[in-house]
Write a protein that binds this DNA or RNA. Structure first.
Lengths: 341, 341
DNA sequence: CTGAAAGCGCTTACAG
DNA sequence: CTGAAAGCGCTTACAG
């Protein structure tokens, strides 16, 4: 029903091979036939059947992106929309389509990726998170299938990865609070099985130790990337006899939860408690007071991940297997001691 | 290199046809061979080649989603992540993959969709917006290709669509402000070529007229779905000799821009100006004061759109070609006159 | 209940 | 510079 290469060939009086070569820009085709064939393709409204092409060429011009299983929640956080925006922009620009998949459990995730990979649906995969001992990474590694991880893998140090220097980022956040005169600084972390939680924890501790500051174990709590986690952490901290005067929060949304709780209880930020978060999502700037945040370049992470993956897929040489996207501290009122105190 | 149906057939001592039938659950295959073939597939790690299957079956188990060309900006708004979340959840649940595409101009958009459709990459398409006289819709219609529009089309009233009753929604928002005692109510609209802008404008006017309230033309401004638009509208309004006391804003992000500007200038909300927005994104609740908003069920829009499309693709009967997702007003401090005024 | 054969729409050595 | 032929991995009438 739709027009094929054979229809075009017939009408142009050439063989299907020739039409195929015209399409792929084969060098040894005469300008005359090229012109004629193109004209007829136009005329007949020919469009290549991607499936047929993929079947023989073993290439799909498509990259897959695995959303974390908790995408439902995580999407509430702007992190994912922002990173996808980076990926879709760059992949479209490179002529690749984007396929999204997800699963509600670890085994479903593996299954989803397996379907994409073994079913030859995509040429490469982007993973949007890094957990400890991840079976998806193990699978991809074993299949020797092109993929890039947004984050860092401890088990597979040699894979392609785009990440921030999260140790340094948390270090910078903590240093900033120390520079503001704080000595009792807490840390609201994320899920402990995420590498990013670990890395930021390390940076926090490093800054504290370097400044010879005490780290009370009760100043460190772990939660989710959710407002509620911040809220809970806040009420825990504020009931401490010897509570911190400043907090580093693993994510802006968590920082926001803290801020909200404090406001409800009548505390003032930064006077009663100073705050720094991560990601610099719009909420941070818009909160009152605006929340200081480490901007980790989310869009850039996605854009670069896509770029790296497509290079790998094309077999281009990768100069750097680990790319670090720079971060920067955006200091705002939540962590700046003003003189009208 | 990867194991095919033929490899499995050989090892099982049956024909490829039989293997194929086992896979597709053909009824007239003996339980014995079914068991044996399945065992061997398992053993050999067989996975069907999706491309080959698509090529012959003319079906892809994939739906496409066209991101609006201004996705870059629009993604800043939680609308898109939320709607995609709804789509991806439902499509995954139905066993369909999701393909995303976009273009930077109208012709690129048409081209992107054409590639998906003519290249037989997807079984159906979801359109995330509705403009007046949209060539993408025209193309899909002409091809008689399954698609659903999130929104409303004036040119093609009979297509599958999932939408809010935006006239009613804006009517409700305006009524709410009138009920709070306001008589001078302004409207900050969106791009005039979007149907949603038009519909909400109609609802606003309807409510005003019904209440016999005056509508000054200078109380209506048009802009983008951006904070800056709200900011600009605000400064325009506040410089008016006879300015409105309340505003309906086309989107929460716009309302937020208004709020921010007012706060900067030392005005109080709702005392100096009351506000109602649309979408009920997290920002609205988190602002101070929290912003009243019409919750339009964004996730639901996406979920339902996917559900409807997949039904259409499968040829199931669609009881309703236009599905309306209910909205509800979430009244918050920005529009509620408190007595401590 | 199962097999042989044709075909989906394309690409690509192999010849010439 | 171009064509005939084989083949990518699957499905599906058609027979039996």
């Amino acid at each position: 029903m739709s027009v094929t290469i054979i229809d075009v060939a017939k009408r142009a009086g050439v063989s299907p091979s020739t039409v195929s070569r015209v399409i792929s820009g084969h060098p040894r085709i005469s300008p005359a036939t090229t012109r004629k064939v193109k004209e007829i393709m136009q005329e007949m409204g020919y469009h290549p059947n991607v499936m047929a092409k993929s079947l023989v060429s073993k290439t799909t011009q498509t990259i897959g992106i695995l959303l974390p299983r908790s995408a439902e929640e995580l999407f509430l956080n702007l992190f994912f929309s922002e990173i996808i925006r980076g990926v879709v922009t760059q992949s479209t620009r490179s002529g690749y389509d984007l396929m999204m998949t997800t699963g509600t459990s670890e085994s479903e995730e593996v299954e989803a990726v397996t379907r994409l990979v073994k079913g030859r649906r995509v040429d490469g995969v982007i993973l949007l998170y890094s957990r400890k001992s991840d079976p998806v990474i193990a699978f991809l590694k074993e299949q020797d299938f092109p993929f890039v991880l947004v984050g860092r893998s401890e088990d597979y140090p040699d894979i392609l990865a785009v990440d921030n220097n999260n140790v340094q980022a948390a270090y910078d956040a903590t240093r900033h609070l120390i520079a503001q005169g704080h000595k009792r600084i807490g840390f609201v972390s994320g899920p402990p099985n995420l590498i990013v939680s670990r890395d930021r924890m390390i940076g926090y501790k490093k800054a504290m130790q370097e400044a010879s500051l005490d780290i009370q174990s009760e100043w460190i709590v772990e939660g989710e990337f959710l407002q509620e986690s911040g809220y809970r952490a806040m009420s825990f901290f504020m009931n401490l006899p010897h509570r911190p005067t400043a907090l580093v929060a693993i994510d802006d949304i968590v920082a926001f939860g803290v801020l909200r709780g404090l406001t409800e209880l009548g505390y003032k930020v930064p006077q009663d408690l100073s705050l720094v978060g991560f990601n610099n999502i719009s909420i941070s700037e818009l909160a009152s007071p605006p929340i200081s945040s480490i901007d980790i370049g989310i869009y850039q992470l996605g854009y670069t991940a896509s770029q790296t993956l497509i290079r790998a897929v094309k077999g281009e040489s990768i100069h750097q297997r680990h790319i670090i996207i720079p971060h920067r501290l955006v200091a705002r009122e939540s962590s700046l001691h003003t003189n009208q105190e």
